[in-house]
Amino acid sequence: MRFIAHRLLLFAAALFGVSVLVFVALRILPGDVAAVMAGTAATPDRIAALRAQFGLDRPLVVQYLDWAGGLLRGDLGTSALTGRAVVAQVGQRASLTFPLILMSLAVALAIGLPLGCASVLARGRRMRGFLHVVAIVGGAVPALWSGLLLILLFSRGTGLIGIFPSQGFPSEGWRDFGRALASLVLPSVATGIVAGAGIMRYTRAAVGDLVDGGAIDMAMACGMTRTQAVLRVGLRLATPQLVSVVGLTFAQMITGVMVVESLFALPGLGALLIGDVGNRDLIAVQSELFLLAAFFLTLGLVIDLIHRALDPRLRIGAGSGESAARSNGGER
């Protein structure tokens, strides 16, 4: 409980720091925020109206407190471009982006875990070299290039094998489940290939260290084959490390997905953020950047807690340190 409380306090402090950083970063832009939002051809009356509409004529401390209070209530403000609540826009776009990220992560795990274990189990030099090249090439290929290659191969209309759509998302959204799922197949594969190569390298390194450390030999001495020992014992012991890697990969996929969304013309969070920046809707950008940062921090907190729960050595080490501290205090 002390560990969880400490992490939650750090999480709250990090959220506060991020909110201040995002707020200040948009206020130190050259010129007045209202003038930037209004555009170069705006009249002074239009700029003054925008400044009054969004409270930009008030002191900065008051502006920050109003914005932070709205965040605590779940009010992210109103878009100057569409007049809609920012939280509604983000929720609509997130219903596309997060399924895409989850599908990409599933592809990455389906590629990375089996090939990583295969790299450890491979006995021939040629097979090990081939898998090593696969890991390097897969990690070096940009998601944009792999997406273009998949479009040329599997897209309807222009691809050699026309199976999946390459542009857009159904206007009905997930109510048309079949078309919606099909439109995310190529983007998820394009992103998952790159992430899968990274997971493959981490899996090979984590399980390979256990092989060198003797854990696999001990399992084989108990009657397991080498393959059984690697898959049952090696993967289980490497799970805490792999959970951290998968969590970080999940967070990194957000930026990769934004690029792929533009390539496949998907109306996700990346398109929303790019459009708001291009249209100078800085009030909406402010809340969207904070949400992205909060998501990264939340994911890091969850990974930290899961890692501690899966790895008993961390709990034992913490308990031993606390016991030693109490013993030293008693001796004094």
Rank of each mutant, 00 (worst) to 15 (best):
A25K: 03
I151R: 04
L272E: 05
T191Y: 00
L266D: 00
R58H: 10
A205C: 06
I316E: 15
G91T: 11
V185P: 09
L210Q: 06
A41M: 12
D209K: 08
L301A: 11
S155M: 06
E288P: 03
R280F: 09
T78M: 11
S320V: 09
F295H: 03
A110E: 09
G256T: 01
R123D: 11
F11N: 00
R128T: 08
N279E: 08
R179G: 08
S155T: 12
L299F: 10
R2D: 11
L121P: 00
G319E: 14
G69H: 05
A293N: 07
T158W: 11
V185M: 11
T227R: 15
L314P: 09
N328M: 13
Q286N: 11
L29I: 09
A140C: 08
L266M: 14
V62H: 07
L56T: 09
L184S: 10
A85M: 07
A108G: 04
D212K: 14
L102H: 01
C222Y: 06
A251N: 05
T225C: 13
Q252F: 12
D281S: 01
P59W: 06
F54G: 02
R125E: 10
D212A: 14
R204D: 08
A140V: 05
G91V: 08
S79Y: 01
P170S: 07
L235N: 08
T158G: 10
A195Q: 12
R280G: 05
E322L: 14
A49G: 07
L81I: 13
M258W: 03
V18A: 15
G69W: 06
F169C: 04
A80N: 11
R73N: 03
A197D: 02
L60I: 13
I47G: 01
L26R: 07
A229C: 04
N328S: 13
L56I: 11
V141Q: 03
L121W: 03
A238Q: 01
R332M: 09
A49R: 13
G330M: 10
A197Q: 03
Y202F: 15
L310K: 07
V211C: 10
D66S: 12
P187Y: 08
V277E: 02
D57V: 06
